[in-house]
């Protein structure tokens, strides 16, 4: 390759990209990690940094609080459970829906995919508003129950409402990768198994399911990872005392204004996600 100018342009472009990534991705993560060693104090910003004119002045207070207080352990366990159940529900229902679409004639598949994705058009907060209006004490479901002469139910601000909202928001994300894998499957394998006398269930269990296993794991993680840090859905639909990691970070930051504790919780959340993220990374490299 001759000429200095294209080489220079190449380096300039790459340098620009590095600067952007350093400033808006690497630096923020590093700041969160160090902020956990700061101390909360009244003022603007409401924090004493872990380093100052006299050098290191950090403390392990927030980390100690995180490890000592059962409150945050409970939040972590609750987040793991909610994200796990949400991802499992999305996987099971999403698998059935994706298989239903993939078994249709090719020209009808885009329409049904569109039907799965179209509720997104109305916007995330408004979709949650729809659930609030449906599940409220004086909401649509209880109004219908009233017409039938039944007692009203407490639906909103329960774990059930939270799970319904979570599955509603994340389900389309689970359907897409599963459909992509199932639509590409070699149907000759299923036909061969059926010809050899396998029942439809055996065909599904021993041929279809193993073929789609990597996509199933990918779609589980695609839901699980963002669900671990979910804030908005629990705030709008969940019980007030259902403290989750995302909500705890939000509350420490906006209400208590304890920035170091919020940073420690964020770091802990990332640590919990390290394993799922590593698995996801390996999956996407293999594909």
């Amino acid at each position: 390759m001759g000429g200095g100018r294209p080489r220079a342009a190449r380096h300039l472009i790459r340098a620009l990209a590095w600067i952007w990534l350093a400033l808006l991705v690497a630096l923020p993560l590093a700041v969160v990690a160090t902020m956990g060693f700061g101390t909360a104090q009244p003022g603007i910003p409401p924090v004493r940094l872990p380093w100052g004119a006299e050098g290191w002045q950090g403390s392990l207070e927030s980390w100690a609080l995180l490890l000592e207080d059962d409150y945050y352990l409970g939040a972590a366990l609750r987040s793991l459970r909610l994200a796990g159940i949400t991802a499992l529900c999305c996987l099971v229902l999403g698998f059935a829906m994706a298989l239903g679409i993939a078994r249709m004639p090719a020209r009808r598949q885009p329409l049904w995919l569109g039907l799965v994705l179209a509720p997104f058009l109305c916007g995330f907060v408004l979709r949650m508003a729809a659930w609030v209006g449906t599940l409220r004490d004086a909401g649509w479901v209880n109004r219908m129950l009233g017409h039938l002469g039944l007692e009203p139910l407490r639906l909103l601000y329960t774990d059930a409402a939270l799970l319904v909202g979570m599955v509603h928001s994340y389900l389309p994300f689970a359907v897409l990768p599963l459909w992509a894998a199932l639509a590409r499957r070699d149907t000759a394998l299923e036909e061969a198994a059926a010809d050899l006398g396998a029942s439809p269930f055996t065909v599904f269990r021993s041929v279809t399911l193993p073929l789609a296993a990597p996509a199933a794991l990918a779609s589980f993680l695609l839901v699980f990872i963002p669900a671990m840090g979910e804030v908005v859905i629990p705030e709008l639909l969940g019980a007030p005392d259902a403290v989750l990691l995302g909500r705890a970070i939000w509350a420490e930051f906006f209400q208590t204004r304890d920035w170091p504790l919020a940073a420690v919780l964020a770091t802990a959340l990332l640590a919990l996600l390290a394993l799922p993220l590593a698995v996801q990374q390996r999956l996407s490299v293999r594909r």
């Binding site: 923020p28 920035w259 993220l277």
Partner: peptide
């Protein structure tokens, strides 16, 4: 990284910066 980081973490991190 921004694709997989939870929004609360990204939001908090960017604000601190």
């Amino acid at each position: 990284a921004p694709l997989v980081l939870p929004e609360v973490v990204t939001g908090l991190a960017l604000l601190l910066v």
